[in-house]
Write a protein that binds this DNA or RNA. Structure first.
Length: 501
RNA sequence: GGCCCUAUCGUCUAACGGUUAGGACACGGCCUUUUCAAGGCUGUAAUCGGAGUUCGAUUCUCCGUAGGGUCACCA
């Protein structure tokens, strides 16, 4: 009944229950288990723990698998692909649990619980009133009925003792007999409890390392008692620190607004950024490196770097990670990604014609996440690339700090713009250069002569109509010489109109 | 309440028992830049408290304190 100790291959698993979506807590556990197995050439198994039919939510399994797939956490055995120890859904493994339950009954290590839930409840209340901890074993029936499956089956802890065990992250842990009680192995509905089922499954599936969060520390003595009863050598326990809600007041949970991991996908976070972020909640490489793609993380990951204390979920840091990973992306990859991210409706906007290809690289260095692209495209922010936009004449005059003490009036701006317009229409030689997008070279001498701030500000506002925008050279090369000229003339006209009123 | 876990800047964290306690996010300043973004430099900011061990404690021990977890026919 012991796992094959000759097989040194590492086997980890992720065993969620299908009660809805996954939030970063669950995914982080999956990530570490996956990374550890992957890194050591082992197996990573996906198993569904659906023994609580009350809490089950339709579609969860698909949702969970989609989440893992998005992040590239691939499993080599699982409910969808099967494997040597199929099935990988606990509700389909009831025979197996029954077999082990019978063994325990035969050995006299498990017995039927004859009490009703109401009776149990009154025992509990009584204990509470007397201010002592409730222990079922104090009420253990002397002659329990034969277990026929209609009653819960409990493990008999005949000698409650202190258990000591080793955790790969926390080191030596121990808990006294108070932590131990006759717990339920099989519920009256015939389904096993987590406490029982996971141990049998891990045995069958050859799991060598159990990754789970620290809320399971207090039930570890129960697990150890059961391993003992079944004469199983326990796997290695790898206890992960809790992830706390952003306010740090409690462990992150669905009830407190923890987000579905696929929400992050919808918002346009990059997979590598997400992995990078998750990896760092509770782990670090021990040096100053921060940016990892999935492969680099795999390379660097180890159990030693896993933290003991909990960390808060910090979405600001996630945004930063995403920005960093965006920087590493090539313009062409960015284009492809944006194209698949933004909706068809957005693509139909007048502000999404072929010029967008030239605008995209500018967007790339100004956003944190893809959803920002959609926002920029649908807002006024980028309209100037596609059409003449409205602005106030006074905005053509550069702010005080750029004038360097020189007085600038609308007349100066007008002269400046005329000169710039002339530059654009000058020699055919220059026209050829402009066709190559050499706007900067054409304008630069004049800007240096007259004062960069004054000239370039006026030009930029004339072209963009905005106080904040891309630089004028880039705008020119996107909109072309003719449009640029038109906008400069419009600006001059605007000034004239202003002056005549 | 019993039991268990945890404790370094606001946040995530680094530091064979000997460091001016380092880095990152966020925040502020400066530089560069026509503006924005990016970039460079830089500033503010931490060892929960108390004993003990030690020549020396962020580090080891104990006691407090605080936070979290757990005490289900949930996982």
């Amino acid at each position: 009944m012991k796992p094959d100790t000759n097989d040194k291959k590492i086997v980890t698993r992720f065993a969620p229950s299908p009660t809805g979506f996954m939030h970063v807590g669950g995914v982080r556990t999956a990530l570490y288990a996956w990374a550890f197995a992957k890194k050591h050439g082992g197996k990573f198994i996906l198993r569904i723990e659906d023994t609580d039919k009350e809490r089950e939510v339709d579609g969860s399994i698909e949702h969970i698998m989609e989440s893992l797939k998005w992040l590239g956490l691939s499993w080599s055995e699982g409910p969808d692909i099967g494997g040597p120890n199929a099935p990988y859904i606990q509700s389909q493994r009831l025979d197996t649990y029954k077999k082990y339950a019978d063994i325990l009954v035969e050995k006299g290590l498990a017995y039927a619980d004859p009490y009703t839930q109401e009776q149990l409840e009154s025992f509990r209340k009584q204990a509470e009133e007397e201010k002592r901890p409730f222990l079922y074993r104090n009420h253990r029936p002397e002659n329990p009925p034969t277990w026929d499956g209609s009653m819960p089956l409990r493990l008999k802890i005949s000698e409650p003792k202190t258990y000591k065990w080793n955790d790969a992250v926390r080191g030596e842990l121990e808990a006294g007999p108070e932590a131990l009680d006759d717990f339920i192995l099989v519920k009256s509905d015939g389904y096993p409890t987590y406490n029982f089922a996971h141990i049998i499954d891990d045995l069958y599936m050859g799991v060598t390392h159990i990754f789970r969060a620290d809320e399971f520390i207090s039930s570890t003595p129960k697990f150890l008692a059961l391993y003992e009863a079944l004469d199983i050598t326990p796997p290695v326990f790898v206890t992960l620190p809790p992830i706390m809600s952003p306010d740090g007041k409690k462990k992150l949970g669905k009830r407190d607004g923890a987000k579905d991991i696929l929400e992050y996908k919808k918002e346009g976070f990059l997979v590598d950024a997400m992995i990078n972020f998750l990896a760092f909640i509770g782990w670090n490489p021990g040096d100053d490196r921060e940016i990892f793609d999935s492969n680099e993380f795999l390379e660097a990951f180890d159990l030693k770097g896993i933290q003991r204390s909990g960390g808060k979920l910090n979405e600001e840091k996630l945004l930063w990670f995403n920005k960093e990973h965006l920087k590493k992306m090539s313009d062409s990859d960015f284009k492809i990604a944006v194209d698949s991210f933004i909706t068809e409706d957005l693509k139909k906007l007048s502000t999404y014609d072929e010029r967008i290809d030239k605008v995209l690289p500018l967007i790339k260095e100004r956003i944190s996440v893809f959803k920002d692209v959609a926002e920029m495209i649908s807002s006024q922010e980028l309209h100037y690339f596609f059409m003449q936009t409205e602005y106030n004449v006074q905005e053509l005059i550069c702010p005080e700090k750029l004038r360097k003490g020189i007085e600038v009036g609308l007349n100066d701006v007008k002269d400046t713009l005329r000169a710039l317009g002339d530059l654009l229409t000058a020699s055919t030689e220059k026209q050829a250069a402009l066709a190559q997008g050499e706007y900067k070279n054409i304008f630069w001498d004049y800007a240096d002569q007259r004062g960069r701030g004054i000239v370039l500000w006026a030009l930029r506002v004339a072209l963009s109509g905005r106080e904040k925008s891309a630089d004028p050279f880039t705008i020119c090369s996107v909109i072309g010489t003719n449009d640029a000229l038109q906008r400069i003339e419009n600006a001059i006209q605007k000034i004239s109109n202003q002056q005549s009123t």
